[in-house]
Amino acid sequence: MTVEIRTKSVKPLTNSFGHLQRRFGDKPATRYQEATYDIQSSANFHYKPLWDPEREMFDVRRTAITMKDWYALKDPRQFYYGNYTTTRAKQQDALDRTLDFVEKRDLLRAMPADTRALIEHAIVPLRHYEWGANTNSAHVAAYAYGTAVTSPAMMNTMDRLGMAQHISRIGLLIDGNSGESLLASKTTWTDHADWQPLRREVERMFVTRDWFEVFIAQILVADALVYPLFFQHLDSAIAAGNGSALSSLTDYLMRWYEETGKWVDAVIKTAAAENPENKALLSGWTVTWRDRLVTALAPIAQSTLGNQSEDALAAVVAAFNTRAAKLGLSV
């Protein structure tokens, strides 16, 4: 039943929630603003967490970074659950058509044996890198301060599971759904000398407690080196002799990486601009993790890109340094 009321003339008592009015003035709020600002509890916590009795349940002191207002770290994509899931669903629909195309024509399985072996050795193990990124991103969602960070961090966590599963599907397209390439890639990840330095750094992130340092190590630095190195440089090298079948699948990963970069850049830029101490800390972490990770990536780059590997890594690092400088970091 719909009750028709002379409500056209009814003026609302208020245009938006009080906490939004205090931030943005008395005007209608966006759905991102409603879902994000000031949602996390911030006062009068009841108990000492058994897992961290020195701090409150939500506590700004879980990172050395300081902010006057943690909600300054907003997401320029303005993701809330609804537009996040519908965006990803749409992207997945497009990806499914590509996967279908590749599968129906057996495009990956038609590649020469050594190319398939190269993809198995150098692309499929990245599913474990993504699972590591999932762990690290979950760390940020769990222990960061404020909905503006924890909400996109949780979306990022799920994105990483999605990317791990997408990379796994590349494996299945190669091994004809037997799963052999996935089993093999796990051993490669845990045992092969090419991958051990990277795995070492991923595990080092697992024991890093400061959530903002984890954010820098994984989501800013590691991703900025790994994605272009594998999904651009190595991908181009493979495409040069084999056509673009693989690129049609890695393109999804690169687009996701670029979209996520908008969020990452906004967070880092704002935090670095907040005060000189932040800038110094963020710069220090960035340099430390960049140097560790560049060293860690050298063996796999060398074994897959051969004599182009140094140039490729140097190009990736140069692009990263330019980006970091634009974000206000001294690198």
């Binding site: 899931t85 965006t87 669903a89 997945q92 629909d93 799920m158 599971l161 999605g162 599963q165």
Partner: peptide
């Protein structure tokens, strides 16, 4: 899997 989650929830 995540693709199914996104589609279903979306």
């Amino acid at each position: 899997t995540m693709d199914a989650y996104w589609k279903y929830q979306g």
